[in-house]
């Protein structure tokens, strides 16, 4: 039951994009078309779950054990960067169809602060292994949900007549604000 509450709060209430403000660069960058948004969402789910699990293990069994907490930033970014590289090579060899689908989004994930952010949140909240797994997956799903919803709205806005100074990123940010306001409604749920 606790895990379900954790999952819901990670997906809806503390949505990584709209309430925690993490991962906003790909949120703005890849949301112009539905296809790219879906590709990015799946790539993030894939990498974030693996990164969350691996950084948890690294932190618990290496960094905390030997008192190397101050190396956390470097260790985590190394894990994420090499993980992304590894996943890319693995997919290219064994599942070319999926690799073609995710394409350019995989390398971009290295600098997606949502991934690094969730890994840090898992550590700061002192989650157990299963909790870390659930939260990584749920945050990733929340990321995908918000990104796909946002892409849907942005495709419609392309057809609307937006005042010139507000065009493109500017109106996108205002839309994101309104979307974020709707996610606020979930706050009383848990």
């Amino acid at each position: 039951m606790d895990y379900i509450i954790l999952a819901i709060s990670c997906i809806l209430i503390n949505n990584i994009l709209l309430a925690q403000y993490l991962g906003n660069c790909p949120f703005m960058g890849t949301s112009k078309k539905m296809e790219t948004a879906v590709g990015m969402a799946f790539a993030v789910v894939f990498v974030l779950v693996m990164a969350g699990v691996i950084t948890w293990i690294v932190n618990t069994y290496v960094l905390a054990k030997f008192g190397l907490d101050y190396l956390r930033t470097i260790a985590f970014i190394l894990v994420i960067a090499s993980l992304v590289q590894f996943v890319e090579m693995f997919l290219k060899k064994s599942i070319p169809a999926l690799y073609a689908g995710l394409g350019i989004f995989l390398p971009l994930i290295t600098t997606n602060c949502a991934v690094m952010g969730v890994c840090l949140i898992n550590v700061n909240e002192e989650y157990t292994f299963v909790q870390a797994l659930v939260s990584s997956f749920s945050y990733a799903v929340g990321f995908g949900l918000a990104l796909i919803l946002f892409a849907g709205v942005r495709e419609r806005v392309l057809l609307a007549r937006v005042p010139k100074p507000l065009q493109d990123t500017s109106i996108a940010l205002v839309i994101a604000g309104i979307l974020s306001l709707t996610f606020f409604a979930f706050k009383g749920m848990v």
Partner: peptide, 20 residues
């Protein structure tokens, strides 16, 4: 959180206005 997005969007709009 919503205010952050809207505020940044409007500031960008003002900058576009000033720049144009």
């Amino acid at each position: 959180a919503p205010g952050a997005f809207v505020c940044l969007g409007l500031m960008l709009c003002l900058m576009n206005l000033a720049g144009s």
